[in-house]
Design a protein around this nucleic acid. Structure first.
Lengths: 213, 213
DNA sequence: TAGATTGTTAATCGATTAACAATC
DNA sequence: TAGATTGTTAATCGATTAACAATC
């Protein structure tokens, strides 16, 4: 149940959390135990004010005169992002992109569990990727009856993505990570995050063009 | 030479251009020839005001009482984004992700030319991907002497990306499309666009968590 | 305690939306 | 011409930065 009383945190703040998380993780690895918003701001190239404002959307994680305990802050952000919920994840589409994502060890490290890979191509079905056997997409309903999943990674062609998304929504999927070059229509209770690679490349192209004209 | 007189267009506007481009492309394919900012705004779920403001950062592409000629606007946006400059692109890292990106036909369709693939693993060097033979990364300097490239797609592990990026910068690369989970330090005349997949997945994780608590 | 640094309010800046005169 | 819709200015909204009292 979403709490409608509390003013929800702007998406622009949310999108900065993973970056904080990354920097804190590196500091932690280096054995640093505390940091002030000022020092972190210099490392990250943002203002200290922004860091303090962002974090205070979720609570007072720091201590006056001391700064932030990195270990604690790191855990807090993981908590906010839901990284310790062990979200069960499936990949739809065992092409090159699906393959690449399946082997992306970072995801397991971030607390996501890869529990299934599906494809419609019978040449691929039955093959093994990262210790998982690729299932046929038509077995998805059975899979949800027995095991279920929270997140589906849509790494399949634009032409079939809408049909598959609808099937997953009918199965009560909670989130879609969409790599196909289309926008999806989903009900309010399904989260979507789009990765439009072409858009990103075009943005790069603009920057390039601007720099060189 | 960047024109310092003209106030540069906010990045937030630039990032919306590819999306306009996509919608216009679809309309074009459907045979629609003109559209008003109002109609487009309804299709895209943005305000008509925003569309007009965005486009007017680059010039008056519409016509009072008529709207926008889709074919013309489509070409104008391609022009702004530099999609017709035939940017020469290389992929560094022929793993699953490099493979996936090499086969991503969208890029060629958007006017980018894939002209080389490089890897450091001798098992992969010499193999063929999408009609290109994978070269050893140590041949990159020779490649630039003879052919050169504008954009490098960095699809290689975090551990080696900084060294490779520095080599490419020394070779006068114009743009880096960075898929590695690190931020790169580059001079002002090199454009960078990061694709931090983990960040995107964590954002999805947040949305999911928020919806279900 | 004195110094440091947070949490938070207030000021500024930039982006979005609304409104409308210009004009096709 | 009358109607439609742009280009553009002005108003609003939201996000960022600055400032400082609270407090560890």
């Amino acid at each position: 149940m979403k709490n409608e009383n509390i003013k929800s945190v702007p998406l622009v703040v949310i999108k900065r959390l993973p970056r904080y998380y990354r920097y804190l993780g590196e500091l932690l690895k280096q054995g640093v135990t505390r940091i002030s918003s000022k020092d972190l701001s210099e490392k990250m190239g943002v203002t200290a004010s922004q860091i303090r404002q962002d974090l205070n959307c979720f609570g007072g994680f720091g201590q006056q005169g001391y700064g932030y305990n990195i270990e604690k802050l790191y855990q807090e952000i993981a908590d906010i992002l839901g990284l310790n919920r062990g979200y069960r994840t499936i990949i739809i589409g065992a092409g090159n992109l699906g393959h690449a994502l399946a082997n992306h060890s970072n995801f397991e490290k971030r607390g996501f569990k890869l529990v299934g890979i599906f494809d419609s191509n019978s040449d691929v079905v039955g093959s093994k990727i990262n210790n998982l056997i690729v299932s046929h997409i038509d077995d998805i309903e059975t899979f949800f009856e027995n095991e279920g999943a929270d997140i589906a990674i849509l790494a399949l062609p634009k032409s079939s993505v809408k049909e598959v998304a609808d099937r997953l929504i009918a199965l009560n999927i909670k989130g879609l990570w969409n790599f196909s070059y289309t926008e999806l229509d989903v009900p309010d209770n399904v989260a979507v995050e789009n990765v439009h690679l072409s858009d990103s490349l075009m943005t790069l192209s603009y920057k390039l063009t601007e720099l060189n004209e």
